[in-house]
Amino acid sequence: MKIIISNRSDRPIYEQIKQQIRDAIFAGLLEAGDLLPSIRQLARDLQVSVITITRAYNDLEQEGFINNVQGKGCYVLPRNQELLREHARQKVEQGLGEAVDAAKAGGIPKAELMEMLDILCREEHYE
């Protein structure tokens, strides 16, 4: 599994790690039952503090993505459909938000924007 961190991002490191593990779960790169690297191993590899990784894992556990089995490690839990849809909705919202901003900045009318979305959907055969 790939986990990389940006040193110049405004986003805290624990959030970057959390996001990447979550994305890997959504993308199916991590499957239910997979064992995540141990907290101390990952801290050592990424050269970040143990507390940073602990925090990322704790959050993921609370959000229902992984399960921490004392003394054994952290396992990926089966994917939750509700969470999956919520995650997809967030991504769509973000992308559409950007499109709206760009349209506004470029003076493209709303009708034309909707039309563009329609064309894109048709090109992808998404009906």
Partner: peptide, 12 residues
Amino acid sequence: ICDLLCEFVSDP
């Protein structure tokens, strides 16, 4: 040096 310190505390 930072790398060595990280390695050192990989022992809990």
